[in-house]
Nucleic acid binder design. Structure first.
Lengths: 225, 225
DNA sequence: GCAGCCTCCGGATCGATGTTCCAGTCACTA
DNA sequence: TAGTGACTGGAACATCGATCCGGAGGCTGC
């Protein structure tokens, strides 16, 4: 009774929604999506599992908040005349980097993303495209195309971790090799490429999209590099 | 005892892995991914839930098989000189149609897809690109780019169902409108577009990608439409 | 000083789920 | 007829998300 730490004691910062989400991201990074449990999360926070429900309504809320939190890592290019193409390239590359840094996030993209961090970056994307003089229907196509491209890329890379030691990769490689008569092209130029090749591949595809977007601008911008 | 239906009776075809997967797809189509339970699935099949585990090792197996099964709906363009561009366009559009017809599938794309139906279509994609004369690194970029683009598109559309009556859409629209000062571009040209606009948007982005791929071929092909 | 209220905590518990154990049933074969 | 192997399913277990409810602690108004 007497020795019980005072509530505002220094032994642990008070539980808060931010601290929960922060720890959730750490747990997701360390152990993956399927290991995230309300009980395990509470344990890491040094509280009971049911306490979390005071700060958060459901587990999905935690996931939504965690997903939005990592989007804050995507740097929004500062204003300045580097041109729309450089700005968008930076944004998309930053977005991709975050997806790769937090592989669990790719699987969560299938839920409405309406957090402030996500919206701020979408806003920047739309605003930059508008400034570049892109009009409908190319505007929607551009915004969707770029988003879909990054999302798909992140999902794909999360599915096929680049680490060549992974069992999944090994098994897939063997399976393709064993059936190389049925899938000759796949077995020869298979989709299991190294990390660097993925990066150049991503950049190439992004270039194609940007070229297409640029060509659809009526009054051509000239000041991009 | 006497009235018990004979095993080979006509009241129900014998349980088999195919029948399980078939019913799983039907259940997923009807009620979505989170309503798929081994018990519910067994109930629809008129058996006990534990019986399924004789034909299938885990629930994930059912999902993998279901995902591969719907890929059989994607028609592989028949041989014939329509040109690589028309063939790939047909394949990608068919792929997208399947993703939209089975919205639950988009969320499952984050698992290794090594079923025969998936591989056959990937093989066609690679083979067609090879025939078109595309070489590395453009080959990988093209295959990945196209796949990522469709996957992202499917995931996005599954997240934001086109049905305007959906609460999610309504809520999102209101939320954007309420914060239109912070997100002016989003609120004005928001990403919540109608179905037709998404189709034209998808086609536009696909054209950009294909243009980029085509431009990267050293010896230019001329026979495409 | 004290009653009342609000914020925050957590043990016990509920219902649902994926999966395993094991005792069966049935058709078919030696 | 005994036995084997393919299948079935009831009972049970561990785990999960979520809720109920009783409490602790601090603050305010009287």
């Amino acid at each position: 009774m007497w020795l019980r730490p005072s509530r505002a004691g220094r032994d642990a910062p008070p539980l808060s929604r931010d601290r929960i989400v922060e720890e959730a991201v750490a747990l997701l990074d360390a152990e993956g999506a399927d290991r995230l449990t309300m009980r395990r999360l509470a344990e890491r926070l040094g509280t009971g599992s049911t306490t979390l429900y005071w700060h958060v309504k459901t587990k999905d809320d935690v996931l939504d908040l965690a997903l939005d939190m990592i989007f804050a890592e995507v740097e929004i290019p500062p204003e300045g005349g580097r041109g729309w193409r450089a700005d968008i390239t930076a944004l998309i590359n930053g977005w991709r980097a975050v997806l790769l840094r937090h592989p669990w996030s790719a699987a969560l993209l299938g839920r409405p993303m309406l957090g402030p961090n996500v919206l701020a970056r979408s806003e920047f994307l739309y605003a930059t495209l508008l400034e570049a003089g892109i009009t409908e229907p190319h505007l929607t196509a551009a915004a969707y195309g770029l988003s879909n491209y990054v999302i798909g890329s992140g999902l794909m890379q999360a599915t096929w971790p680049a680490d060549d030691e992974q069992e999944v990769r090994q098994a897939a490689r063997e399976h393709l090799h064993a059936n190389r008569e049925r899938y000759p092209a796949l077995a020869a130029h298979g989709p299991l490429v190294a990390d660097d090749d993925r990066d150049t591949g991503f950049t190439l595809g992004l270039t194609w999209l940007l070229d297409g977007i640029q060509a659809s601008v009526t009054n051509v911008m000239t000041e991009y590099t």
